[in-house]
Design a protein around this nucleic acid. Structure first.
Length: 256
DNA sequence: ATGGTCGATAGTCGA
């Protein structure tokens, strides 16, 4: 089973840049999307159906903002929208699909880059997400949590750790959250295989950052450590350019 | 210190 996570920075924009042709070439079993930036009536569902994908969308209340989705060639047994708390669910940041014993979550953690208020919300959100995950594990112990975490964990995950020491996305408290998260029994599947620096999943649109590979690794497939023996491989697709992020993939044994 | 770039929208805002 191959799962791809992709912050598309607007699904309609990504489609205009060749997203569907890319999807048809890759044909992953499951796709977790973030920043769909579309209301339900603005989503061209038929495009995905034509390619054989069922799709499930959790949009934000605010037009053109946030939003997550899961596309799947396999029919999920169940789909859950949000974390079950109205305080956190109106921005369309979490959707979960269950496939047998496996649950796949597409998550878009808040950005804190627009100011102190959103940074505070981000930290609150992260705390709540931790609780959500711990509770979810009681009934769904085999989890793949894929998405845009908006946090670089280690200095090798960001091109300039010194200059970004005070940047949202690389703050000590954010990095410590990821450490605590992994310590609670999750695996950063990309780092499980690749120990080298200079592998990123997001680049600023400004200053030709992408051409110069001055990026941040903020998109992850985190899996519960009970799936350790099922992880086959993981990687990043920096050559795919429909967004300021690139897709990240995870290959798992399908029989749990 | 400033400005640099996008997507979605119609407010400029949020990233």
């Amino acid at each position: 089973m191959r799962i791809i996570s992709y912050n598309v920075n607007g699904i309609r924009s990504a489609i205009s840049k060749g997203f569907l042709e890319w999807l048809d070439q890759e044909r992953p079993d499951v796709v977790c999307l973030q920043e769909t930036k579309a209301q339900p009536d603005q989503i061209p569902l038929f495009h995905f159906e034509e390619l054989g994908y069922r799709s499930y969308w959790h949009s934000a209340q605010k037009k053109g903002y946030s939003g997550v989705a899961i596309l799947s060639l396999i029919e999920p047994d169940h789909v859950e929208y949000g974390m079950g708390n109205p305080l956190y669910d109106n921005e369309g940041r979490v959707i979960r699909a269950d496939f047998g014993k496996l649950s796949v979550v597409s998550v878009y953690h808040p950005s804190g880059s627009s100011g102190d208020e959103r940074q505070a919300f981000k930290m609150q959100w992260l705390d709540h997400f931790m609780l959500y995950v711990q509770e979810l594990r009681q009934k769904r112990p085999h989890l793949v949590l894929s998405g845009d975490y908006n946090i670089c964990h280690q200095p090798i995950d960001i091109h300039d750790p010194v200059r970004n020491a005070k940047s949202s996305g690389f703050l000590p408290e954010e990095r410590e959250w990821v450490t605590r998260f992994l310590g609670a029994g999750f695996i950063d599947t990309f780092r499980f295989f690749e120990k080298a620096p200079h592998h990123y999943s997001w680049w600023s649109f400004r200053a030709n950052s992408r051409q110069k590979n001055l990026g941040w690794r903020i998109d992850y497939h985190m899996v519960t450590d009970n799936l350790k023996d099922k992880i086959r491989n993981a990687g990043i697709m920096p050559e795919v350019v429909h967004s300021d992020h690139c897709p990240v993939w995870l290959e798992m044994d399908h029989n749990l």
